[in-house]
Amino acid sequence: MTEAPVALLFWAGYSVLVLVSSAYIKNWTVLVSNNPATRVFPRRWYDISGRKVADFWEAALRAVMGVVIFRPGVSHVELRWRLRSVYDRQELSDLVCFLQENGFLRGRCGPRIERNENGYLGVLDEQEEKEVFWFIGEKHWYQVAL
């Protein structure tokens, strides 16, 4: 049996994007269980046990989709600005990645911005956020859920 790979680096930071070594993951996560030791990144949609609260997760997904539906082609920097009072940089990144990977969002950008092996945009720095624009994907927006 093989174990899941452990990331050596991860993206963090709430106002500025920071690449962090996994040796410092304790500083960026919350311990939700001692036995077994379980740590999660703090997100608005997790309860104190680290379980996803479906209503909060759906509300977050619909908030992002709502901005894109009413402002197709919205830049990532504007999307983050519009949702800044509710979601931080990392939360928005998680939401956009989920929506993109599940076909609800489609990003357009210039050739300078790299995509992962599946063609999806990953975590964006400040300059890249200005060059990525979001549109509705091929799935119907009203089907957004878990």
Rank of each mutant, 00 (worst) to 15 (best):
residue 145 A to D: 13
residue 73 G to W: 00
residue 37 A to M: 13
residue 4 A to G: 04
residue 20 V to A: 11
residue 135 F to V: 02
residue 76 H to R: 15
residue 74 V to C: 01
residue 88 D to F: 06
residue 55 D to V: 07
residue 77 V to G: 04
residue 133 F to L: 10
residue 12 A to W: 12
residue 98 F to P: 07
residue 61 L to T: 03
residue 138 E to K: 14
residue 5 P to R: 14
residue 73 G to S: 08
residue 10 F to G: 02
residue 24 Y to C: 10
residue 37 A to K: 15
residue 77 V to E: 14
residue 13 G to A: 00
residue 54 A to N: 15
residue 53 V to D: 01
residue 108 R to I: 05
residue 2 T to D: 08
residue 67 V to K: 15
residue 11 W to A: 05
residue 137 G to I: 00
residue 103 G to S: 04
residue 11 W to F: 14
residue 125 D to R: 02
residue 21 S to Y: 03
residue 89 R to F: 02
residue 102 N to L: 07
residue 146 L to M: 12
residue 110 G to N: 13
residue 131 E to A: 07
residue 77 V to Y: 07
residue 138 E to P: 09
residue 70 F to H: 11
residue 96 V to D: 12
residue 79 L to H: 00
residue 53 V to Q: 04
residue 13 G to S: 04
residue 18 V to N: 12
residue 127 Q to N: 08
residue 93 S to C: 10
residue 114 E to Q: 14
residue 45 W to K: 01
residue 66 G to C: 03
residue 118 N to I: 08
residue 36 P to Y: 02
residue 47 D to Y: 04
residue 48 I to V: 14
residue 85 S to A: 12
residue 71 R to K: 13
residue 94 D to G: 04
residue 123 V to F: 10
residue 17 L to C: 03
residue 140 H to C: 10
residue 57 W to C: 03
residue 58 E to I: 07
residue 46 Y to M: 06
residue 58 E to Y: 05
residue 26 K to S: 13
residue 23 A to E: 15
